[in-house]
C-alpha cells in the first residue's frame, strides 16, 4: 500500500498571534513551527498501517525551505521519503493543486491529511485534492482501518458518528481518535537525515480569492464576579443583562 501524508507547517499551539505590514501578514518573528497536530495524527496512523513492510509512506509539504525541519521530523517519526513543493503555500486551492498534480503521477492508495490546519482552520485541502483526482473523500475521520482494498472509517456527524466503507484510493481527513501522535526515537532521528527529500517546482494556479487583512478579536470585558453563595444573582444577570437565557 502506498500512502501519501500531507503536512502543514503551523505555529506552535502556544504562539502569540500578531500581524505585520498593516495587519496584512502573519508575524512569523519568534514563532516556533510544528507539524500541524491533525497531520501528526494522520502520520501516526500511516506508520501503523504501513508497519511490518505492508506499505510505504511519502510525506508531502507545499512550502519553502524553512519548513525542512518539520519535514525531517515526519521522516524521523516513520515516513520513508518526503517531497516538498517549493512555493509559498498561498491558500488551500493552491496547495491542493500542487499535491494533486504530484499524486497523479504516483498512484497512491491512501491520501491522508489532518481534518484541518490550526492556522487558517480550513478543512479544504482534502476535499479539493479528492475532487481534482476524482476519488472519494471523507472529511473528519475518528477511526480508520484498511482491509484489502477497502477503508472502513468512522466519520463524525452532529451528535454522533457514521460508519462508512469506501474503496481505495481515497482521501481522508483525520481527527483525534484515529491514532496517538508518535514521538520520534533516536534511530528515527538518525535515519531521517539520510532519507530522500525531493524538492519539486510548483505549478501555476490562478487565484480565486485572497486574504486582504487580519484583525485580532476585540478584547473581552472585565469579569463581573458573583458571590458563590448568591448564585441566583448570576441567573438574573444572564437573563436581564446578557440576555442569553
Amino acid at each position: 500500500m502506498k500512502i501519501l501524508v500531507c503536512l502543514s507547517n503551523v505555529p506552535d499551539t502556544t504562539s502569540k498571534i500578531t500581524f505585520t505590514d498593516n495587519n496584512t501578514a502573519f508575524n512569523t518573528a519568534g514563532i516556533q513551527y510544528i507539524i500541524n497536530p491533525y497531520d501528526e495524527i494522520a502520520l501516526a496512523r500511516a506508520v501503523e498501517l504501513a508497519g511490518n513492510g505492508q506499505g510505504t509512506i511519502t510525506v508531502i509539504h507545499v512550502g519553502e525551505a524553512a519548513a525542512d525541519p518539520t519535514i525531517r521530523k515526519a521522516l524521523a517519526i516513520g515516513a520513508d521519503q518526503a517531497v516538498r513543493i517549493d512555493a509559498y503555500p498561498r491558500d488551500a486551492w493552491f496547495v491542493a493543486h500542487q499535491i494533486a498534480s504530484y499524486a497523479k503521477t504516483q498512484n497512491f492508495d491512501l491520501i491522508l491529511t489532518g481534518r484541518e490546519s490550526i492556522d487558517y482552520n480550513g478543512s479544504l485541502v482534502q476535499g479539493y485534492i479528492a475532487e481534482l483526482l476524482g476519488i472519494p473523500s471523507i472529511s473528519i475521520a475518528k477511526k480508520l482501518d484498511i482491509n484489502d482494498s477497502q477503508a472502513t472509517v468512522e466519520r463524525e456527524i452532529e451528535g454522533g458518528k457514521e460508519v462508512i466503507q469506501v474503496p481505495l484510493p481515497v482521501v481522508i481527513g483525520t481527527a483525534e481518535g484515529v491514532a496517538e501522535p508518535k514521538i520520534p526515537n533516536m534511530r528515527g532521528i538518525m535515519s531521517a537525515r539520510t532519507k530522500p527529500l525531493e524538492v519539486i517546482q510548483a505549478i501555476d494556479v490562478p487565484a480565486l480569492s485572497h486574504i486582504t487583512h487580519f484583525d485580532t478579536p476585540p478584547p473581552r470585558g472585565n469579569v463581573k464576579l458573583v458571590d458563590k453563595d448568591h448564585v441566583t444573582q448570576l441567573v438574573e444577570l444572564l437573563h436581564s443583562e446578557a440576555k442569553v437565557i
Binding site: A92, W93, A96, E116, N121, G122, S123, L124, V125, Q126, G127, Y128, A130, E131, L132, S137, I138, S139, I140, R155, E156, I157, E158, G173, L208, S209
Partner: peptide
C-alpha cells in the same frame, strides 16, 4: 460549515471553479 458541509464545500467549489469562503 457543518461536519458534512466541510466535506462538501471544497468539492463543490472545485467543480465550479468557485472561490470558497469556509467558516
Amino acid at each position: 460549515n457543518s461536519f458534512s458541509g466541510k466535506g462538501l464545500a471544497p468539492r463543490i467549489a472545485a467543480k465550479l471553479d468557485a472561490a470558497l469562503a469556509d467558516g
